[in-house]
Write a protein that binds this DNA or RNA. Structure first.
Length: 463
RNA sequence: GUCCCGUUCGUCUAGUCAGGCCUAGGACACAGGGUUUUCAUCCCUGCAACAGGGGUUCGAAUCCCCUACGGGACGCCA
């Protein structure tokens, strides 16, 4: 446990310019975990200084995603707080005040209509291979970043950078530092892509004469090697949090999954509720190397949570998934639905594939599996086997598992075979596939009428 | 191109800070077997890694150096 007197204040600073990325969500989660763990404050600050690109829907999404993940904030939009406003677009007065300090100290100057920060050191010009131009540089003293994850990182900033853009809007580095100072931020936990920005930020802290917060730079989330190289981008499958909602993933599973991207608990436990994450989370245990995204791991974790989901919750998610695939509507027979779910439960690792797995229970519009067609139906004697069993099923007075089983058993006894010999062909006839839930319970749930009808249809088809 | 960060099974990682307990542990994936007389569950088994090279040391995955490779930054985006 950490010392309470530390008075931790951490912030999450998303910009409302697009969908919430998995890396963004992880930054939110790790900051939240650290705040909750230390009894500190978790602050939500909206980085909306780029007027051109901000959208209301992006802001709405950020708030929606945070609540979906269960990350509540102590200060910020909707929550308020004494360090507001929490929208950078509304903090103009504060930025002006801080800019004045830099101007007074002779550390700001105008150029091309923008205001630049002036580094200290000898100036010279040099041809820059990257910019393909002569560029003014400054021989500055190196700064040392004390990073909780990486140790000391030494870097030198060698070019003046923009404080205020020519359109009058303050720039990222400036507002970032000013806000962290004025909001009393103690720890900055962010992505490694900011590591090279940190030297700019440290120069600013020096210029303001304010001690910097403690930094910790998390590793990047990289693409699955099968998809490509480099860091995960919005376009990659699995990169957007909203996508998981749409695919009916459980939020606890998503939280668990992103927590394991670049971090792991000392005890090796992998399936962790948010409370268990809280008990174990330590910034020091965050990995240095980039973490590769693995869709399979995501599904596996989702499955773990599906297994322990209370049945009524399970039904809720299942209804959503099945409704959005137009397989059921609110008039569905609840008992039938629950019967089907009981069969599918513990068979599928995501509600996303529940519709495909169970379509034939609800609709005539289900796919015939090609492989099963060839393997089961095209096999010698398949049609005969189906014909043999059909009258025996039709004749059943009771449609129970044991009655159905008995029908198969009797036929098997007469021919000296196992009932197993008829299962696949019947399964194929009623479901169009050779895999699925437990066979007997499945027939029972489908009901005699449907089973017989599908079998007859199959028999009647010329294929 | 310059600067910064990194490198343990296919993937996530434990172990690295305090060198011997590591013939390198777990999980996902994959493969094989078993159970459930189907099956995408479940159980068992297997496969599989310290990037390479130099040092230091009685001893190195662990410390140092070099090389290679990967990642990031270099915006009047954040």
């Amino acid at each position: 446990m950490l010392l309470p007197m530390e008075n931790v204040r951490v912030r999450f600073e998303p910009s409302p310019t697009g969908s919430v990325h998995i890396g963004t969500a992880r930054a939110a989660l790790f900051n939240w975990l650290y705040a909750r763990k230390t009894g500190g404050r978790f602050i939500l600050r909206i980085a909306d200084t780029d007027r051109e690109r901000n959208t209301q829907s992006a802001l709405d999404e950020i708030l929606r995603v945070l609540s979906w993940l269960g990350l509540d904030w102590d200060e910020g939009p909707e929550a308020g707080g004494e360090f507001g406003p929490y929208f950078q677009s509304q903090r103009g007065d504060i930025y002006r005040e801080y800019l004045q300090k830099l101007e007074d100290a002779g550390r700001a100057y105008k150029k091309d209509g923008a205001i630049f920060f002036k580094l200290e050191g000898e100036r010279y010009t040099e041809y820059d291979e990257y910019h393909k131009a002569e560029i003014e540089k400054v021989r500055t003293e190196p700064v040392v970043i004390e990073d909780l994850i990486r140790g000391k990182v030494t870097r030198r900033e060698e070019r003046d950078f923009v404080l205020v853009r020519s359109n009058g809007d303050p720039g990222f580095h400036f507002v970032n530092v000013v806000d962290d100072i004025s909001m009393g931020i103690t720890h900055v936990l962010r992505g490694e892509d900011h590591l090279s920005n940190t030297s700019k930020h440290l120069e600013l802290y020096k210029a303001f004469g304010t001690p910097p917060p403690i930094f910790a730079h998390m590793p990047m989330i990289l693409k699955d090697p099968k998809i490509g190289k480099g860091k995960m981008s919005k376009r990659d499958k699995g990169a957007l949090i909203e996508e998981y909602q749409q695919r009916h993933f459980l939020s606890q599973a998503v939280v668990n999954f992103i927590a394991l991207l670049g971090w792991s608990p000392k005890d090796g436990k992998e399936v962790l509720t948010i409370e268990e994450l809280l008990e174990r989370f330590e910034i020091k245990d965050i990995q240095k190397a980039g973490a590769r995204f693995d869709d399979k791991k995501m599904s596996h974790l989702n499955f773990e949570y599906m297994k322990v989901l209370p049945i009524c919750e399970y039904e809720k998610y299942a209804r959503q998934a099945l409704t959005s695939s137009n397989l059921i509507d609110e008039n569905v027979d609840g008992e039938h639905l629950r019967g089907v779910l009981e069969l599918c439960r513990e068979k599928i690792d995501s509600f996303e594939n529940l519709p495909a797995f169970s379509a034939y229970f609800f609709s005539e519009d289900y796919t015939i599996n090609e492989k099963a067609f060839k393997k089961v139906w095209r096999r010698e004697g398949a049609r005969e086997r189906l014909s043999e069993i059909t009258p025996r099923l039709s004749d059943l007075d009771e449609w129970t598992e044991s009655a159905i089983e008995y029908a198969f058993q009797q036929l098997a006894n007469e021919t000296g075979e196992k009932p197993f010999a008829w299962y696949p062909v019947v399964r194929f006839a009623v479901s169009g596939t050779n895999s699925g839930p437990d066979f007997l319970p499945m027939l029972k749930i489908m009901g005699k009428e449907l089973v017989i009808r599908r079998i007859n249809d199959r028999l009647a088809s010329i294929n």
